[in-house]
Design a protein around this nucleic acid. Structure first.
Lengths: 204, 204
DNA sequence: CGAGGGGATCTAGCGGTGCTAGCTATTGGA
DNA sequence: TCCAATAGCTAGCACCGCTAGATCCCCTCG
């Protein structure tokens, strides 16, 4: 603590920390790549260790266990989803809601293993109010922004949850081959139509 | 084959087959109970064998592997869901759609492990057109029937898929603690409102 | 009634998993 | 130059899904 930060922080200690941080990220990247290439079942601590060219116990000096690695991958995935949603701007005549929905579903389709880690596998990522990862808040925030224009008199947060749930349901059931590909287009049209067009009388 | 069915079928052979069928069902029931009590991770072939009071290899004389056991549990779960949906009749002033939605979500909430085996864990249950289990068709059929009254001009099957997907998304995200319990009621109101009230202009 | 055959069942073990105790060897500081 | 801290590894534990091969029981037939 006292000996580390002299001379503007350019110390051996700092180099070590930097190398350690790089290896930390390397583990996450390799785990993610392996999962996307062969599925999470193929991500074993042995294979992971082999790919990062260290022995197994090194993984445990960075993460509490395999679950923690998956969680780290998931959180970075949320960041990527947030980025994708942010830059998903509607093309001419297209609603912002539709642009967001299509970006979301495409993300789930192209990165099924990553999506799985984020929203399917149960993890102890804290979703309660305290210390939710920023990446997660960002992603949800993008959905809120996409829903806002069609909110009408409705509760914005609850409506966004409905929107998100529907997309999530479609994404996971599609991934499991449980929905008919024939309806892919119609399904999205119906969902967007239902959520946005609805002429809401106030009452009830 | 020729020696088994004499005397109206009351033979030792038949008794054996009956006992075997009972044990088959016993395995399914124990697997399901264990999963619901401690989660699927706790369902190992060793524990399962111990609970049915046979050795491990007996399981493999009934099922091709652990996955096949989970699948059997899942299919019977579909039968139960179908039964629940069928008898979920709307109380006064309540729409049939709402009755079905509430029954569906309650099923998912009360039998999370069973629901997981049915719709979350990936299994090779054939969802394509050929040899889909009858229980599955029944359950989906109940959803179709619940959606039919609000269909309007919309494609019934696609609309049912949207309804199902939304419920599924809500069920799984809730189970993972990813939705705010505060919005439980509002969320369902919004979904049902969006799917049913929508005054649909024909075009587009 | 006794011997043989066939099927049902078990014991034991294989290769894999996540995870960790404890040894080794390198390396930075006095 | 020597020492101590520490980063990393080897080896192993308990468990997993699954199966080969031995064993035992029970039914059939002479």
């Amino acid at each position: 603590m006292s000996s580390g930060a002299r001379f503007g922080g350019v110390t051996i200690q700092n180099r070590r920390e930097r190398e350690r941080a790089e290896r930390h990220q390397l583990i996450i990247d390799v785990a993610r790549d392996l999962a996307e290439a062969e599925g999470w079942d193929a991500v074993t601590t042995r294979r992971l260790a082999e790919k990062v060219e260290y022995s197994q116990p090194v993984l445990y000096s960075h993460f509490k266990g395999k679950d923690a690695i998956v969680r780290a991958v998931a959180i970075q995935g949320c960041g990527e989803l947030a980025r994708l949603l942010r830059k998903a701007r509607p093309s001419r005549g297209e609603s912002r809601l539709r642009a967001a929905a299509e970006a979301y579903l495409e993300f789930a389709r192209r990165r099924p293993a990553l999506y799985d880690a984020m929203f399917v596998q149960q993890s102890d990522i804290p979703w309660g109010t305290d210390e939710v990862p920023q990446e997660l808040l960002d992603a949800f925030g993008e959905l809120v922004a996409a829903v806002e224009p069609v909110r009408g008199e409705r509760d914005l947060e609850a409506l966004t949850e409905v929107f998100w749930s529907s997309l999530h349901g479609i994404a996971t059931l599609m991934q499991g081959g449980r929905l008919r590909p024939v309806h892919d287009e119609t399904r999205l049209d119906l969902l967007l139509g239902a959520l946005s067009l609805a002429e809401h009388e106030d009452g009830l």
